[in-house]
Nucleic acid binder design. Structure first.
Lengths: 200, 200
DNA sequence: TACGCGATGACAGACGCTGACATCACATGC
DNA sequence: GCATGTGATGTCAGCGTCTGTCATCGCGTA
């Protein structure tokens, strides 16, 4: 029977409350105290779960990173660096961004796109991802300069694919969009003196 | 004698003071009030010159952007998108990062690398650069997806080259490092139908 | 001489974030 | 059972960031 002293899933409630309020009034017009109150908690407790006002929208980033790194470590030895990264991105797409999550992702992205500070944090997460990718590639024996550039390109591929996924219909498959994004990047950098290829 | 009511170059003094203090005590251990005081001003006046505590280290970003966009608009019509971007980056390198500035760049970069919040802002500036590049490439007739990816890759090229320039000896030429970085990126994405494909 | 402008100062206040200490259901060991 | 410890939360005080508002006053201009 024992109603526990506190309702469970405080963290989840905070995320939910924040997403609602950011959607209703916008990020800047929302105070942390309000988020906490809607979640049935106090401001102080909010800061025990999240480092700052922005971080509440980026809780999944560590799972993202771990999934990616793990998949890259297990990629076939014969895979080129960029292909290994894409394998990892596919694993993330499957594990974290199934069709059911499309709507949540849309609301979250809408909040981020409406505020410069949140975009800043998102950029920061991508940069952290690059750093993790460099380590993962290094463990595959990839030399540092190649690892760095492969990591950066890999993140670009994901950014573009994710953007298309969020903006598009929910039936689109993120893994497939990642493949398309990879092809596009190859097209961009292919030319020795490549003839532009203005076509879409 | 016309001692003006205020000393000139308030903005420059604020940047100088901030760079000194961030170097001496670190970013977080420095208050805006202290920066303003060292510059002979008040905290309120600091915020009239810079939007927030971080922005004092990123004043050059608009000049950077304008120089880049202008050079791209004037690049030869036959240049591929990525080559046009590199032409722009060379223009920036020449205009904003001559050898004399190497030491300033080093101190600034040291401050940024020592604080997550400042790195966040730097990432944000690069993202803004991507957006500007997309517009500039669009005006050259480049289609959107290609423009986006070219812009992202172009920024990666600059990031890597700039990093090498800052970390290296001052006699290194940034333009030259940009060319090397471009070659490296082409190497990374070169693979055509490279095997693997283990992906789902 | 009067007037407006522009850069700055002074002050109050909201909000983000942190440290320190108190509370109390629950688990654990005796 | 009973004492004790633990973990998540609440409460309170306080610093620092950032903004709105009004006052100051040298300078250019009519």
């Amino acid at each position: 029977m024992g109603m526990s002293r506190w309702k469970p899933d405080a963290q989840t409630r905070l995320v939910q409350a924040a997403l609602e309020l950011y959607g209703e009034r916008g990020f800047e017009q929302t105070t942390v105290a309000e988020i906490a109150q809607r979640a049935g908690l106090t401001e102080r407790t909010y800061f025990r779960h999240f480092a700052d006002k922005r971080e509440v929208l980026f809780g999944g980033s560590t799972v993202f990173e771990e999934t990616l790194i793990h998949a890259i470590a297990n990629a076939p030895d014969v895979a080129t660096p960029i292909d290994a990264v894409v394998v990892g991105l596919d694993a993330v797409a499957e594990a974290m961004f199934p069709p059911e999550r499309h709507d949540y992702a849309r609301r979250r992205q809408a909040a981020i796109m409406a505020n410069a500070g949140l975009q800043e944090r998102e950029q920061s997460k991508f940069a952290s991802l690059v750093a993790a990718l460099v380590v993962a590639l290094g463990q595959r024996g990839v030399d540092e300069p190649t690892a760095r550039l492969t990591a950066e390109v890999g993140v670009v591929i994901f950014k573009v694919a994710f953007e298309r996924w969020v903006d598009g219909d929910q039936h689109l498959d993120l893994s497939q969009l990642i493949q398309e994004s990879l092809r596009d990047v190859r097209g961009v950098t292919a030319g020795e003196g490549s003839a532009v290829g203005a076509a879409a």
